[in-house]
C-alpha cells in the first residue's frame, strides 16, 4: 500500500493511508502558510537584522517541507546551511555594512509588474510539470532505476543519496567542493583574515 509514492509502514487496510493523507496535507498547508507569512514579513520589514533572522526561519520552514517530502538529506542541508551558517554569515556582513535598508527612491509599480508577470508565467509553467511522485516523469526514466536497483550491489551503501552523490556522481561532487574552495579563496583575496592585536579596539 502506498501513499504519494512512499510505502506505508504499517500496511494496514484502514489506518495508514487515511491518517497519513490528512496529516500530511494539514502539515503541508500549515508549513506553506508559514512560508508565505515569513516571505511577506521579509518584504515589509525595513530592519535588515530582522530580515536576516526571518530568512533563517524561512530556511527552517523549507527544511520542514523537505522532511514532509521525505527528502531528509536535502532538509538536513537546508537546516544546516540555510538556517544555520548563512544566518551567521549574513549577520557578520550586517556588522560590516549597517543594518538599515535604504529608503526606496522610485515607485514600486514597475518592479511589482515585473514580479507579477514573472510569477504568473512560472505558475502557468507548473501546469506542464509532471504530477508529484509520478513514476512516468522524465526525471525518473533515465538513470534513477539503475541507482535504485543496482546501487546496493554496486556501491553497498545503505543511504542511496550518499551512493549517488559520492560514487555515481563523484565528479559532480568534486566540482561542488571546488566551488566551495573557490568561494573561500575569493573571500580571502577580497578581505583577508587579520588577527586583531590586543587593545586594538577589541570589544
Amino acid at each position: 500500500m502506498r501513499w504519494r509514492g512512499r510505502p506505508c509502514i504499517p500496511a494496514g487496510i484502514r489506518a495508514c493511508p487515511i491518517r497519513s493523507a490528512v496529516i500530511d496535507q494539514v502539515i503541508d498547508v500549515l508549513l506553506l502558510i508559514l512560508l508565505v507569512i515569513t516571505a511577506i514579513a521579509v518584504v515589509r520589514i525595513k530592519s535588515l537584522f530582522a530580515v536576516v533572522m526571518l530568512f533563517g526561519i524561512y530556511s527552517l520552514i523549507t527544511a520542514g517541507i523537505f522532511v514532509v517530502l521525505d527528502a531528509v538529506d536535502v532538509a538536513f542541508t537546508e537546516a544546516a546551511v540555510g538556517a544555520g551558517i548563512t544566518t551567521v554569515l549574513m549577520l557578520t556582513t550586517l556588522a560590516r555594512t549597517g543594518h538599515k535598508q535604504a529608503p526606496a527612491r522610485h515607485s514600486p509599480a514597475l518592479p511589482l509588474t515585473v514580479v507579477i508577470i514573472t510569477g504568473a508565467v512560472l505558475f502557468w509553467g507548473t501546469q506542464d510539470m509532471p504530477r508529484f511522485a509520478d513514476p512516468g516523469a522524465p526525471i525518473h526514466l533515465h538513470v534513477a532505476d539503475r541507482y535504485i536497483e543496482a546501487g546496493p550491489e554496486e556501491v553497498g551503501v545503505p543511504n542511496m543519496v550518499t551512493a549517488v552523490l559520492a560514487s555515481y556522481r563523484g565528479f559532480d561532487t568534486l566540482g561542488e567542493v571546488a566551488v566551495v574552495f573557490t568561494a573561500g579563496v575569493g573571500v580571502l583575496a577580497l578581505l583577508g583574515v587579520r588577527r586583531r592585536r590586543k587593545g586594538d579596539g577589541d570589544g
Binding site: 551558517i85 554569515l89 557578520t92 574552495f181 568561494a183 573571500v187 583577508g192
Partner: peptide
C-alpha cells in the same frame, strides 16, 4: 575538511576589521 575550513575562514574574514 574543505567545507568546515572555508566556512570558518569566511567567518573570520567577515569578523576581521569591524568595530
Amino acid at each position: 575538511i574543505t567545507v568546515a575550513a572555508v566556512m570558518m575562514v569566511i567567518f573570520y574574514a567577515f569578523m576581521g576589521e569591524q568595530n
